[in-house]
């Protein structure tokens, strides 16, 4: 039963570009990117207990680096992607050193402050970043000579990336290391007494989450062919966090579901009401007050209740 559903889902996912119009294909690509981003944040929030309000830093910096490398400095896409990811990971390593001096609310405030530095820089260092105008006229890469310009090609590309990301992150949290990460989230003192180094476990996770944030950033800039400081803003970090929490932090599929909902809502809101920030705020209030554990755990609970009833 489960396998049939999975196969059906896979068939739909693979064949979508043949049946749906460009609008929906593009929307789906954006969902994949948002899902990768939310999954990476979930490593911190859900599995590590580190609530970051600065995750847009990694998406934004990778995107800006790729844009700058390919336009300003004339690198090819392959080299630019490598530099962007290395740069983003290095930055995550450094930010982790600072932010992990604190835990809890202190950590949240520091990640927020650090991401605001980058946002401010993107606006103000207009000599490099083009400031409020953003960097336009970017191209998509053509891996192995396959052009990603068409919506369908990009769709398959981002689908593949999302699958790899999901599998890799699932392996990560299920591993022995993932077990210690969850242990450190729940009982850091006990874990230290058992011989685990809580700081190092958090830091490694922080860097790894930064890496996947950077991958999401690359896809983001490839998709939009444009980058603007708002991608580094608190709103951008908050959208991802909302996706994680709405879907269910600390679950594997939850953040992907949550990110999908946030993205659909955002598309709808910006097309019809143009009040995305207000809606985002209201949804935050709603989720935290009404559904604090998220949609996926909520549904699972409901499903298990329905399952048990007949027997």
């Amino acid at each position: 039963m489960k396998w049939i559903a999975l196969a059906l889902f896979a068939a739909v996912a693979l064949l979508l570009p043949f049946v749906a119009g460009d609008f929906y294909v593009n929307l789906a690509s954006q969902i994949f990117i948002a899902a990768i981003f939310a999954l990476s944040l979930n490593l911190l929030v859900g599995f590590g207990g580190m609530t970051s309000l600065g995750h847009a830093s990694y998406l934004g910096v990778a995107a800006y680096l790729s844009a700058l490398m390919t336009t300003r400095y004339g690198f090819g896409h392959g080299a630019a992607a490598l530099i962007s990811i290395l740069g983003t990971v290095a930055m995550a390593a450094f930010f982790g050193l600072i932010a992990l001096r604190a835990t809890g609310l202190g950590f949240l405030m520091i990640t927020l402050a650090l991401s605001q530095v980058l946002w401010g820089l993107a606006y103000r260092m207009s000599g490099i970043t083009n400031g409020d105008n953003g960097i336009a006229g970017l191209t998509r890469p053509a891996p192995f000579g396959i052009s990603l310009e068409s919506p369908a090609a990009f769709y398959w590309f981002s689908l593949l990336a999302a699958i790899i990301a999901f599998v890799m992150m699932t392996i990560f949290v299920s591993s022995a290391f993932g077990s210690s990460l969850k242990g450190v989230r729940d009982q850091p003192r006990r874990m230290a007494a058992l011989g685990f180094n809580p700081w190092m476990i958090r830091w490694i996770t922080f860097v790894y989450a930064g890496f996947w944030g950077g991958i999401a950033g690359l896809l983001y800039v490839y998709y939009n062919k444009y980058i603007h400081p708002t991608s580094l803003s608190t709103t951008s970090s908050a959208e991802a966090l909302l996706g994680v929490i709405a879907g269910g932090s600390g679950t594997l599929a939850g953040p992907a579901v949550g990110a999908t909902l946030v993205l659909l809502l955002k598309n709808y809101a910006s097309a019809y009401v143009e009040r995305w920030n207000m809606l985002l705020g209201l949804v935050f209030l709603f989720i935290v007050l009404v559904m604090p554990t998220g949609i996926v755990p909520g549904l699972q609970k409901l499903a298990s209740r329905l399952w048990r009833r007949p027997s």
Partner: peptide
Amino acid sequence: NPLGQVLVTLGMAFIISD
């Protein structure tokens, strides 16, 4: 729910700002 508190203050900030 201290984390929830922070998140609603963030939500409120978006609402006021918009």
